[in-house]
Computed example of a mutant assay.
Amino acid sequence: MATAADFFTAEEQQRIEEAVKAAELTTSGEIVPMVVDCSYEYPRAELIGSGTLSLACGLFVSWAVGGESIWWFLPVFLITFALFFLVIRAWPAFKRKLIHPEEFTIEVKEKAMVCFLEQGLHETRDKTGILILISLFERRVQVLADSGINAKVPQNTWDEIVAMIVTGLKSGAACAATCQAIARCGELLQEHFPRKDDDTDELPNLIIEQKS
């Protein structure tokens, strides 16, 4: 799985930043695209997955080889638990299968809200900050807008912007779709919050979350 650091090439990152600059030339609003590896680590998936698989292995070996002895079951269970735990952690495609889609939805929304506050999008002068969050592990996109612009734009419009980027992610055109979404956000902001003479670029034009 691509990480946030290498999901967009250097050229694509520049294209996205230029798209943000172009969109913000006509509005007092702020648009911040952000790419993260994941919205949450989902440790429960690793524990439940490895526990279930190692339990099955321990029971099978105990029944087939050890005459249902617990002294066969315990070492097999412990060894395979550790192995399956490492496999699930290193194999994102399999780990995703162990997580309910609704949990993805909840965690990506929560991540977007946390990032919105951490990056100061709630502090723009006219409450016009828009966060476009791309969460790679979940393969989800969340668009979160501040109260100023959100009061003037219906929810289905934000849903259309999300769908635009998701389609690009699936087709391998993530950069083009992100730029298109940024342009659409710029149109919405321009319509309701045209640029003022004293406007400044208050926020970053692209944020790539770096793992510590």
Rank of each mutant, 00 (worst) to 15 (best):
Lys196Tyr: 11
Glu12Tyr: 00
Ile99Arg: 00
Ile182Pro: 02
Val87Arg: 08
Cys175Tyr: 11
Ala163Leu: 15
Leu136Cys: 00
Ala93Phe: 01
Ile130Ser: 00
His192Phe: 15
Glu138Tyr: 11
Ala10Lys: 02
Thr3Tyr: 15
Arg140Val: 03
Leu203Val: 01
Pro154Leu: 11
Arg140Gly: 09
Ile79Phe: 06
Asn156Val: 03
Asp6Gly: 15
Glu107Ala: 11
Lys211Leu: 14
Ala145Asn: 05
Ile161Ser: 04
Trp91Thr: 15
Glu118Gln: 15
Ile208Gln: 02
Ser39Asp: 09
Ile88Ser: 04
Phe85Cys: 07
Ile208Pro: 02
Ala45Trp: 12
Ala82Arg: 07
Leu78Cys: 15
Ala5Asp: 10
Asp6Glu: 13
Asn205Met: 10
Arg140Thr: 06
Val61Ser: 04
Ile165Met: 10
Lys127Phe: 14
Glu123Asp: 08
Val36Ala: 14
Gly129Arg: 05
Leu98Asp: 02
Ala173His: 07
Glu209Gln: 12
Phe85Met: 13
Val108Thr: 02
Trp91His: 15
Leu144Asn: 07
His100Pro: 05
Lys109Asp: 10
Trp72Asp: 00
Asp201Ile: 12
Glu202His: 05
Ala64Met: 11
His100Trp: 14
Ala112Gln: 09
Arg125Asp: 10
Val141Leu: 04
Phe116Thr: 09
Ile99Phe: 02
Phe77Thr: 10
Val108Trp: 02
Glu103Pro: 09
Ser212Trp: 14
Val36Asp: 04
Leu136Asp: 05
Ala163Cys: 08
Phe94Asp: 00
Leu203Trp: 09
Val143Ser: 08
Val141Gln: 01
Gln180Trp: 05
Phe60Gln: 08
Pro101Arg: 01
Ala22Ser: 13
Glu102Tyr: 13
Thr3Pro: 14
Lys152Gln: 14
Leu188Tyr: 01
Gln210Asp: 13
Arg44Ile: 06
Leu188His: 12
Gln180Met: 12
Lys152Gly: 01
Gly172Leu: 08
Ser28Ala: 15
Ile207Tyr: 06
Leu169Phe: 00
Glu107Val: 11
Asp199Trp: 11
Thr27Tyr: 01
His100Ile: 03
Ala112Lys: 06
Met34Gln: 00
Trp63His: 08
Met113His: 02
Ala5Tyr: 09
Ala19Trp: 01
Glu123Tyr: 00
Gly29Ser: 09
Phe193His: 05
Ala82Phe: 15
Cys175Asp: 07
Phe81Thr: 02
Asp197Ala: 05
Glu107Asn: 13
Leu136Phe: 04
Leu86Ser: 12
Ala5Pro: 07
Met34Asp: 08
Pro194Thr: 06
